[in-house]
Design a protein around this nucleic acid. Sequence first.
RNA 1: GCAGCAGUAGCUCAGUUGGUUAGAGCACUAGUUUGUGGAACUAGGGGUCGGUGGUUCGAAUCCACCCUGCUGUACCA
Length: 444
Amino acid sequence: MKKEKKNKPSKELPLGFADRQEKELLVRDFIISNIKEVMTKYGFQYLETPSFEYSDSIGKFLPDKERPDEGVFSFKDENKWLSLRYDLTAPLARYVAKNFLEIPKPFKRYQLGAVWRNEKPGPGRFREFLQFDADFVGTKSLQADAELCVMISEILERCGLAKVDYIIKISSRKITEELFKKININDNQQKLTALRALDKIDRLGWEEVKQLLGEGRKDKSGDFTKGANLGKQNIEIIEKELKKKLPDTEDLKEVIKIFKNYNFSNFKFDPSIIRGLEYYTGLIFEVNLKFDVKNNKGQIIQFGSIGGGGRYDNLVNNFGNYDAPATGISIGLDRLVYAIMQKKEFKLKRLKPVVICVFDKNFMREYINLLLLLRDAGISAEIYPGESKLKKQMEYANKIQSPAAILYGEDEIKLGKPTVRNLITGNEKSIEIKELINEIKKII
RNA sequence: GCAGCAGUAGCUCAGUUGGUUAGAGCACUAGUUUGUGGAACUAGGGGUCGGUGGUUCGAAUCCACCCUGCUGUACCA
């Protein structure tokens, strides 16, 4: 006989979703406030678009046609399909196309928000995550691209990173394009596989990448990845060309010149960065952290880039006939938060409330008077939110890391002198009410 | 998706060649004399041993499948 199973609701989270606790949220808020300040300083508009869009608005016109309908959360509303946005760029393109006649040209906007991807999550990757995007729409000027790099580096440094902690890698799609033309690769599939292989140079090294350009490679776990099947000669040419490659395309020369004017030097030309496969059209860049990031077991994990961006001159155009060359940057905020939490010991402890202990409900009026006094002085305070013995109240105050407890029982009330217990040192002091604010301020 | 490893209490784990009512530490709850947290002591609650099916007199332990997690790899708008 089986016991009857009680159908309790599941306490598990859906795959790829996470609760976020205060410790993390405070760091996130800190980063976001830096982002907002810097973005305002750089003259970007703040924009918010809805979480849902019509599926065709964000799917159909995507340049990556390999899997246009996969990976998004969708449902049918009446008879139209809606999808949760999977990035902030597609909604931007839609917004620009919709409001093209009214908005300034060029249009500069930044946006912060969650995006959703319906796919199996990986290490440090979720199905719901926060992105920060900044874009210029409607300008071909490489001044815009340069500003994005300068701006993200200012944000990172404000968040506590030093120049040695990160690097902006730059390259241009034109380099690989020319290279493929030179060795006569025309098969699109082969091109894509080759691009993916080249993308991995810094992680795997040339030897392994050459395997991927050729027949394929086995990874650490023994899994085999098929390669691009290029001829040996062509592989040699690619290696030789890229190794000696200089940033000599027009766009790279130009943007490096602009960096110089900004006195910005924390970048590196790296022909191996590739980014989104069919998306970018010219200059591309990637923001990489240079310090080790560990998981909660203390193992160092492959963290890779926290974001990047580049020029996409055709996206907005897909919505209509507007010519809107654009460039943008996109940062994965959760990963940045995770990395920064490890890099710096953050002293972002939120001020916890002073706890006023409740001896007797009949004294509530006195307690509220003290409470208002403290709060009016801008001090976080609360009356113990429950009905328990004093011991429990002290345990509670300790648990929430309250700086001080105020004891105001019958004896104290008669004297009009509450007792302030410093919960860090354990010292107690009986003081006049008018001294209360000063006393608390001394503690916190 | 592919590969390797893992899944026993909220957390970290132990569990002998399959054998009574499955354990420890930490955490939690209640006490250790009436109004005092972080230490100590006492007592207590909590687990269909990831799930389902199978082998067996008997399964946390063996087998199969599935689920979940970690790490790598692939994909990534």
